[in-house]
């Protein structure tokens, strides 16, 4: 690792100030950023560790019934505390391994927007709202392709607000070495329709499968997906699976998610 200064602010206000410094970068749980620093894939002059900022931790129910999760909340805390949204708690319980889940945070995962991460699928399928130090961002506007989001320099995710669906399920086809999703599909059924978000598959990162959404909004059953398929074009192709294989898996995992959601 290249050398850097580290700040550990105790308040959000201090964190915002610290991130105003030149070449400063926020550090969530570090489960992605620290390995990246070790490989010298990132070389910030200053890291601002958010782990001491109590204001952005915890889970609460919003006035509109939404499940609101602080950006600094760990995966383990979501797994244990998001009982109001069981599919989301189950997703958090399968990220990485127990020690990773004790450090990694939802805000860090979303800000990184790894194309194979689990949380982006939940956020997009739930039509969640990402709340930052500057604004509120709709899930449909937040993700901008692999490792890219609409977040600006120094902007911190303070909370993610999930409308709780009638039914939902996340199916993850795990890449067993990394435990990231080779393909993951999150299906959420709301009163006004069904949303289907896919992670791990596309070179553009998480995306909504609109054809499946239309079919499932009419009939929320695995059979409604019959005949629907995605092209392997633009899908991630690597030693773990070709684009065509991933495209095929998307349909399989979507059917499984719908069946499991009941």
């Amino acid at each position: 690792m290249y050398a850097f200064e580290i700040d550990r602010p105790a308040t959000l206000a201090d964190a915002i100030t610290a991130l105003g410094a030149e070449e400063a970068q926020a550090l969530g749980g570090g489960q992605t950023l620290i390995p990246a620093l070790k490989q010298r894939l990132a070389a910030p002059a200053r890291l601002v560790a958010l782990s001491g900022v109590a204001e952005i931790k915890g889970i609460r129910t919003g006035a509109d019934g939404a499940l609101c999760i602080g950006g600094g909340t760990t995966h383990a805390e979501v797994a244990a505390g998001a009982g109001a949204y069981p599919a989301l708690a189950a997703l958090a319980a399968r990220i990485g391994d127990p020690a990773v889940r004790n450090r990694g945070t939802i805000g860090g995962s979303l800000a990184n927007n790894d194309p194979s991460a689990c949380y982006p699928a939940a956020v997009l399928a739930s039509g969640a709202t990402v709340v930052t130090t500057n604004r509120e961002i709709a899930a449909d506007d937040f993700f901008e392709g692999m490792f890219t989001t609409t977040l600006e320099d120094g902007e911190i995710i303070t909370e993610v607000r999930f409308p709780v669906p009638e039914k939902a399920n996340y199916q993850k086809f795990e890449q067993p070495a990394s435990r990231f999703a080779l393909v993951g599909v999150f299906v959420a059924k709301y009163a006004d329709g069904v949303r289907v978000a896919v992670t791990g598959a596309s070179e553009d990162g998480v995306f909504r499968w609109s054809e499946a959404e239309a079919a499932l909004s009419k009939d929320f059953a695995p059979g409604a997906l019959e005949g629907l398929s995605l092209s392997g074009e633009g899908m991630i192709s690597d030693l773990h699976g070709s684009g065509d294989y991933r495209a095929h898996l998307v349909a399989v995992m979507t059917r499984r998610a719908v069946a499991a959601a009941g």
Partner: peptide, 26 residues
Amino acid sequence: DSSQCGACVVHVNGRAVKSCTMFAAE
């Protein structure tokens, strides 16, 4: 040294963490 193997697991405030993937300052 890449948070895969878990040989470095210690408890921080009662929670198992990989001590190779956490800064001492934290």
